[in-house]
Nucleic acid binder design. Structure first.
Lengths: 300, 300
DNA sequence: AGCTCTTATGAATCATTGA
DNA sequence: GTCAATGATTCATAAGAGC
């Protein structure tokens, strides 16, 4: 069992009441994951070092070598992920010599050869991307969140990430339009009427595959690769309380902190001593966010 | 010269005062472009039929055959584009058997082998995307606008698409965040402080690579693949008045109408008789939009 | 004119049925 | 079997009507 494996590792913040574990491991994710059995995790969500980024900590993988460097790891992720699980990969290609590099495209194609299904590509729209000006391009305000699965039947809890309805609701739901009625009447007894009645009580709608979140720009010394709300969104969407979440490139600990706050067990692996220490520090003290308190997501 | 080639074709709305031409050609773009010399166009902006779409008019290219179908055309686009020109390709992959298809990724890789530079990927955020609910995915609210170039030195007129300062200005610039102050002070004399002071007097800022536009869904009988504001944005960004714009998959004529309104010469090619007639009809009567009147773009 | 309210519909996707 | 056609689901926008 996972508990036995994790006994010897640094295990933080065990919440006895709910029996939630948050485990931070120090080392290379390939080495550490070797000790985990198949089908250990419900969700893998991570933001790996982009090519040529985090030079000091990761040695700066060259863009041309990125796919070759990453593929053994995705192979191992495939093994430890449950058949109903999901892998969310937050990544963006660098601009190299005036061009977008193609390593992300190649990675997707190669991962499909490993057996991954490329289910979806979410766009993280960074509402407050960093200012700057270049003669040949605008500021980069988005990143990819690639969704991979092992099977077409995976767990998804859409209700957990619903967003408030727009002004739209106030105007339209007061009185149904003829179109909606006609669309309904054309199919006798179809479910549309029922759904309308569902809408009347609703205040929230399902989101799209564009996620609007600001980047975190606080005073923290070490900024996270992504804001906590991003892993939170995917953790809510693809796991339930008590499920297991993995971040093999933990960085400053954002994913584990998000998982902990949502009462999910988590394992985070970090190869850099500095980031490892930071992740440990960030998880102290124990802080739980009630599920009901969790942040609302902007619709635009 | 282009004028000679276009003499025999249907040429609409010649604005004698400014000598702007808007030419709609009927046929396959590969055939029609063969009559154009190298380096004819400053901008190619188009939304080709997506795989399996527009079944009646285009015969429905199968996703697996899409790249093979498209590559001869991009080869010809490369020839007729000026060295300083830009090719904007609006495209999105379909979901096929629960997965995103990979034809767009493969297309980018193959086009680079033809000699194209993949300069940038803009995201068109469709604010009013198609409704629907499925167990395994959310509504698709974005499309790719891929930017390709022949050279790293291409024409770009960033000032033409500046957007009004949004909430961003109000929240961030009124009171500089501690981060900015710290950052500024940490680099004595670096450019950041100067830039801030520049912004304080400004009313407009450069946009990002995320474009927020609703799809057109009025009461019109024939809708365009993309809203007119989308080609307008790229025409302003990559051409000047009097330049030449090409849309090899014109559809209902949106690109030519946008070019005409902005006093750019344009050539549109359409293979479907119905869409060809529609494009001709849509360009009558002549309607010019003053440059100053041109639409403002949402910042979110 | 400006406002509210009504109405149509959009490069969608999945499950099911029919050829 | 494979493949094509149909049905079910659902949100944000703009045009148009009415005041």
């Amino acid at each position: 069992m996972l508990n036995r494996i994790l006994d010897a590792s640094q295990s933080l913040n065990t919440n006895l009441e709910r029996e939630i574990q948050t485990n931070i491991l120090f080392g290379d994710c390939l080495d550490k994951l070797a000790h985990f059995p198949d089908h250990s995790f419900d969700l893998i969500v991570t933001s790996p070092p982009y090519a040529d980024s985090r030079l000091r900590t990761y040695g700066g993988i060259k863009p041309d070598d990125y796919v070759e460097w990453f593929l053994p790891k995705t192979q191992e992720f495939l093994r430890v992920l449950k058949p109903t699980g999901t892998f969310i990969l937050n990544i963006k290609e660098k601009a190299v010599e005036g061009e977008r590099h193609t390593y992300v495209l190649e990675l997707i194609l190669e991962m499909r050869k490993q057996g991954w299904l490329w289910t979806e590509e979410f766009i993280w729209h960074k509402k407050n991307c960093y200012p700057g000006k270049w003669p040949n391009r605008f500021r980069d305000a988005w990143e990819r969140c690639l969704q991979f699965n092992k099977s077409r039947k995976f767990n998804m809890y859409q209700e957990a990430v619903m967003v408030p309805m727009g002004d739209w609701a106030e105007t339209r739901l007061k009185k149904l339009s003829n179109t909606d009625k006609v669309r309904d009447e054309s199919k006798v007894g179809s479910g549309f009427g029922k759904n309308i009645s569902n809408w009347l009580g609703r205040e929230k709608v399902y989101p799209t595959n564009v996620i609007h979140l600001p980047t975190e720009c606080g005073n923290k010394k070490h900024s996270a690769a992504f804001p906590k709300a991003l892993p939170e969104w995917f953790i809510k969407l693809f796991t339930q309380e008590g499920d297991w979440v993995l971040d093999p490139f933990l960085g400053s600990g954002t994913t584990c902190k998000a998982a902990q706050g949502l009462y999910r067990n988590s394992v985070g692996i970090e190869i850099s001593p500095e980031y490892y220490d930071l992740a440990i520090a960030n998880l102290e003290p124990l802080q739980h966010t009630l599920f009901e308190e969790s942040g609302q997501y902007a619709t635009r």
